[in-house]
Computed example of a mutant assay.
Amino acid sequence: MEINGKKVVVIGGASGMGRASAELLAAKGASVAILDREGSDGKEVADGLDGSFYTVDVTDFEGTEQTLAAAVEALGGLHVVVTTAGGGIGERTLGKAGPHSLDTFRKTIDLNLVASFNISRLAASHMAKNEPEDEERGVIINTASIAAFEGQIGQVAYTAAKAGIAGMCLTMARDLGSLGIRALAIAPSLFATGLTKGIPDEFADALTKDAAFPKRLGRPEEYAKLVAAIVDNPMLNGQCLRLDAGQRFAPK
């Protein structure tokens, strides 16, 4: 799908990989709306892209539906959605204090997996209304993690959520194929965003020592480049793409 002239929504676009994706797609001629939490830098980022900003709590599923609808109406359509909002907690299945909290497990699943599916299903409904371009109507890109495949000790909730995102790709692509809508996910390793942004070099080196090359944290713009490549190449569909410098997480 040609990026220029398309309507894009980036969830979590106020910072990190979401911001880099919004900036790159806008630079390539897309109209971009950023959805992110209240108190984020979303307004300033959107203003810099001549785009729009909407506050959203992705775990408020009805509110997300209303906010996405408003963003799509203002854009005049929707061709691409990128979801990067998420997070997790560190807790073992059975720890010294007892079994893993069921409440925190559910919250992690809601934040990462259910929210991503909710946005995907709603985005597909909007994309289905598009006039096709070379039989294509839209692209859905969710964010998984290599923890989906090699979850570390204490990541059981996060692993379950990200594995769900990875696992949805092929089935969702099959569900939406007749409409000309593609569905994929990106599984990054450790990137310089959030808590890892600005950490000392020696700590970053320790975290990435198992990578093949390059042995460093990923850069948000490298995630954005893959987003753009996915949108641009219609033969990419139904899969979760690792973006990890050949790294495999050790148990801890």
Rank of each mutant, 00 (worst) to 15 (best):
G51E: 06
A85C: 07
R19E: 13
H79E: 14
V32S: 01
D41W: 02
P200A: 09
R137F: 13
G98L: 11
A71G: 13
D244Q: 14
T193C: 04
A46Q: 11
L207K: 04
L170R: 12
H100Q: 15
L243D: 04
A224V: 05
G238L: 02
M235W: 15
V139G: 10
N118S: 15
V10N: 06
A157E: 02
I3N: 10
A212Y: 11
R248E: 01
G29M: 12
L184K: 10
R37D: 12
L35E: 12
H79N: 09
F249I: 05
V32C: 06
A74K: 10
A211F: 12
I119N: 04
R174P: 08
A124L: 15
E131C: 00
G177R: 00
G76S: 07
E221K: 08
F105T: 03
S21H: 02
K162C: 08
R19N: 14
T83N: 09
Y223V: 13
A206M: 12
L241K: 15
E202R: 10
R137K: 09
G167A: 11
T171G: 12
T93D: 08
G90M: 15
P214W: 11
Y54G: 14
A157V: 05
G154V: 11
S15F: 00
A160Y: 01
G13M: 03
E202L: 09
K43Q: 10
K197Y: 02
G194L: 02
A212Q: 08
V58F: 00
A204P: 06
D47A: 15
A115Q: 01
D201L: 11
C169D: 09
K252C: 03
S40G: 07
E136P: 03
E202K: 07
E131H: 05
A147T: 08
F61N: 05
I230T: 12
E221L: 07
I165W: 00
A74M: 07
M127P: 03
R219Q: 06
K7F: 14
R92P: 13
F191W: 00
I146K: 10
N118T: 11
D244K: 13
Q155E: 07
P251L: 06
L122W: 05
L78R: 02
A147P: 09
I140R: 04
L75G: 09
A211R: 05
V227H: 02
E136H: 12
L25P: 14
S31H: 09
A33W: 02
D175C: 07
G29Y: 08
G98H: 13
T83Q: 07
A144I: 01
L75I: 06
S15A: 08
K7I: 07
V80I: 14
L25G: 05
Q239H: 11
L207T: 03
E62V: 10
C240A: 10
F61R: 01
D60V: 01
I11Y: 00
A124V: 08
N237F: 01
E136F: 06
E222Q: 11
Q239T: 13
T67R: 01
K197P: 14
P200G: 06
G51S: 11
L176G: 04
T196V: 14
S178M: 12
A229P: 03
G218W: 01
L49Q: 03
A148T: 04
L170K: 09
L241N: 10
V81T: 13
F105A: 05
I34S: 03
A187I: 01
D210K: 12
